[in-house]
Design a protein around this nucleic acid. Structure first.
Lengths: 339, 339
DNA sequence: TTGAAAGCGCTAACAA
DNA sequence: TTGTTAGCGCTTTCAA
């Protein structure tokens, strides 16, 4: 009955609901009600309990509460790209939305290794996460992480190859449209395309989007798309190549910012004045790259954070029984700089 | 008494230890022992229980086990830089070590906002994490995240300003030494320094390390360190400036890779041939930047992943009662490319 | 308005 | 060798 917090009651001492009950002179049930605002209690009692809880520095062990609730208010985020360029903003966004739902994320790095991924999946399930977000690094569809999982899954950025799954992706074609609109608006008519490897869905989608957009503006593409790699070196090389064969080019839509940066360097070093003679637009809005380019890049932001946010929202919906399967497309937006 | 898993027993049905017990015809206690390898059981029983568990697809709810164990086997990772350049490798490393201890990390993005940070701290404590890693983005000491916390804390990259805390940091002076050694070894004698803002500890430490290392080699520094910003533009500008006043320079140690990239561009554009006339060394080994530079950068890798790993190890030690307070320095290493 | 008691799913004594 | 029982810290009926 007596308070046992002796002289050694350091801050490290964990105080439980029972301690608060003893201190406030009520039962544990009452403490629970008082602190959660449930049940009907006298205001005075509620206040007394609150005071006791504060004095003791009581914070409820959510794990115990969750055990009872049958859920954990946690979700697992499995990234495939070691939190690289794409995973990070997605995670940021996801964390944002999750926090709004009083949830928190477990972090798992799949490193593009299916074994690791399955291992993590097992660990997450064991911990009874309420749901899982699988964040990819390429826009190519990926095989589902598992079949008939006991919790909902949302695929972010890299969609699941199963259309019945819930995926959130960027608007690849829309990105090309935004780029073309900007180029056209700034007076460009002869637009070329320098991009990544043809084996990447995003390179293909963006190229296709470009073709559509050019057609919509009654423009002929300048040459076939230059497929290569997502590197500056390729951008520089392709830019030189392009100039050699098409001296009337006045706009280049690049598959990503890294290539765009290479392109600006290649063009500049070939004596072209930017953006006067040729306008360049990239994709990604990767601050570091876009801002360091000369001139700083105009580029399409794919809205990665928004993808993360949306993924988390859809996951929360699914957890609450309102699953929205299918592919959800998040629009991007143009970021105008000087190129 | 009868099995209630009716026709609707879909995969989503959660099976508990009781279900396994019923299936195997033993008590729950026996199931627990069988599955955990504790107690003494007949092999036959153990096998039967295992079989039953497998058939039912049983995975124990770790949360229940942890409630009893009084710990959660989770740690919180609070980053201050939105998982940017520095936080990410640290997290990767931490996850590595944690997984080895059957732990998993909660991810919290502090965004350099003390309010957010405290909020996350509260959430983590509420969930009874066993420990916390605070991953910084600058090497400047930071104020402790809290006093007398009920769980151990390890500061990664950005040390705590309280020397009694446990911090894991990079070897800033050592980085300068590695750079100088390499430059000297490749025949450079007139070495200049272009770096970031003097308000950053890392800029100062690296400059100091450079001075020491030069002295150790009986070399005079070329001019005072050029303090500026961590940008390519500054690197380009400073390089031009440097050439104007010191035409005998044959080596430049740069405060980081971004600056180094600017420096290489600036030197090259001034007609200097690299690395023939001037050798350049950066710090960070940031793949994207170092590899895209012309020529690719020789740079010092600060061992961020190792910092993450070490932090997690020290945290696990502390959780197990073997705290090792103080500042732990992780050595870096030179990555030789062409510059 | 409050207290007592049952129970979330598991583990660990202690009995049998 | 196995079963029974008492909790881990909390929420939630149901009584009082």
């Amino acid at each position: 009955m007596t308070d046992e917090t002796g002289p050694r009651a350091t801050t490290a001492r964990r105080v439980g609901i029972a301690d608060v009950a003893a201190r406030a002179g009520v039962s544990v049930g009452t403490v629970s009600k008082a602190l959660n605002g449930s049940g009907r209690l006298r205001d005075e009692t509620r206040a007394r309990v609150r005071a006791a809880a504060d004095e003791l520095g009581f914070t409820p062990i959510s794990v115990a509460r969750n055990l009872l609730a049958g859920r954990t208010f946690t979700v697992g985020v499995i990234t495939t790209d070691s939190y690289g360029r794409f995973g990070i903003p997605v995670m940021r966004g996801a964390e944002d939305s999750l926090a709004a739902g009083e949830m928190i994320a477990f972090l798992c790095d799949g490193r593009d290794d299916p074994i690791r991924e399955q291992h993590h999946l097992g660990k997450l399930l064991e911990r009874r996460v309420d749901g899982i977000i699988v964040a990819g690094r390429r826009t190519d569809p990926r095989r589902p992480i598992g079949a008939d999982l006991p919790v909902p899954v949302v695929y972010a950025f890299a969609p699941s190859s199963d259309p019945a799954d819930c995926s959130v992706v960027s608007d690849e074609r829309g990105a090309a449209q935004l780029a073309v609109e900007h180029l056209v608006k700034t007076g460009r008519r002869r637009i070329a395309h320098i991009t990544g490897p043809q084996s990447h869905a995003s390179a293909n989608e963006r190229a296709a989007g470009l073709a559509e957009a050019l057609a919509a503006h009654d423009l002929e593409p300048v040459d076939e798309p230059y497929f290569g790699s997502w590197t500056e070196a390729w951008g520089r090389f392709a830019a030189a190549q392009l100039l050699r064969t098409h001296d009337d080019v006045d706009g280049v839509f690049c598959g990503n910012d890294v290539i765009a940066r290479g392109v600006t360097d290649g063009l500049r070093e070939a004596g072209i004045s930017l953006p006067t003679q040729i306008g360049v637009v990239g994709v990604d809005n990767w601050g570091l790259v876009a801002e360091a380019a000369r001139p700083p890049l105009t580029t399409v932001d794919l809205g990665l954070e928004e993808i993360g946010r949306r993924s988390a929202e859809l996951l929360l919906d699914a957890i609450n029984g309102h699953a929205q399967p299918g592919v959800h497309v998040v629009p991007g937006h143009l970021v105008v700089r000087e190129s």
